[in-house]
């Protein structure tokens, strides 16, 4: 058997099990097939104010439809696994804190928002965290990762400016994009990434 000559950080990344990402994705799938999940977990401003505070966190795990869930998972799962493999502690901290941060941001700065659900804020957060981690590492392809960050910024900015989804199509006609959720996800990733010392990737 040939010896593994990879750097220790690469070997460690390979051995890391991205359980936090997989657990959150599994819970999102379970919430989708559980008929009462939306009633109990979705962000509803009136109910949050009335004391159902868990909705600030759990709203990120429920979805308005199969395609809504599917597209979000397609971004969240690969970026979450990648980020968790190379920086497990920071990624898990981000996954634990960001849902609450998104919920609090919506409650504080979007008073007209009555209902919210979806993993997209978290997906934006994991994608941003992956970009930040790569940009802080010396061996990263800076042009590519800057491009990814620019793409994410264009999406968030355009949705804020246009008031409609830029890359996605919602099944419901009355659902509007909430760029603040994506912005809060990115902010959570930035806080977690830049307030801790970088580690070589």
């Amino acid at each position: 058997m040939a010896a593994d000559l990879s750097p220790p950080s690469v070997r460690a990344a390979r051995e890391t099990v991205p359980w936090a990402t997989l657990v959150l994705a599994g819970v999102a799938l379970a919430a989708f097939v559980w008929p009462d999940a939306a009633g109990l977990l979705v962000y509803e401003r009136d109910r949050v104010v009335a004391g159902e505070w868990w909705r600030l966190w759990t709203a990120n795990l429920v979805h308005f439809g199969g395609s809504h869930l599917g597209w979000n998972l397609l971004v969240f799962v690969p970026t979450g696994i990648w980020a968790e493999r190379i920086a497990p502690g920071r990624t898990r901290l981000m996954l634990a804190l960001t849902p609450g941060l998104i919920g609090i941001a919506l409650l504080a700065f979007e008073p007209a928002l009555a209902r919210y659900a979806g993993l997209s804020g978290m997906a934006a957060g994991t994608l941003a965290l992956l970009v930040f981690l790569q940009l802080r590492a010396r061996n990263a392809d800076r042009l590519f990762w800057c491009g990814v960050l620019a793409l994410l910024a264009v999406k968030i900015g355009a949705e804020a400016f246009l008031g409609r989804a830029l890359f996605a199509h919602f099944a419901g006609t009355d659902i509007r994009p909430v760029p603040l959720a994506h912005l809060a996800g990115v902010a959570g990733a930035a806080v977690v990434c830049f307030t801790r010392r970088p580690r070589p990737i």
Binding site: H68, L74, V75, E110, R115, N139, G147, A165, A168
Partner: peptide, 29 residues
């Protein structure tokens, strides 16, 4: 009060895939 959400559609993933074409293959991590 409105219902809101966010999503990454296929177009976003396609844009990411196009972007990955400019990535230098020898520096992939």
């Amino acid at each position: 009060g409105y219902t809101g959400s966010g999503a990454f559609g296929g177009a976003f993933l396609a844009a990411l895939a196009l972007l990955s074409l400019v990535r230098k293959p020898w520096r992939r991590t």
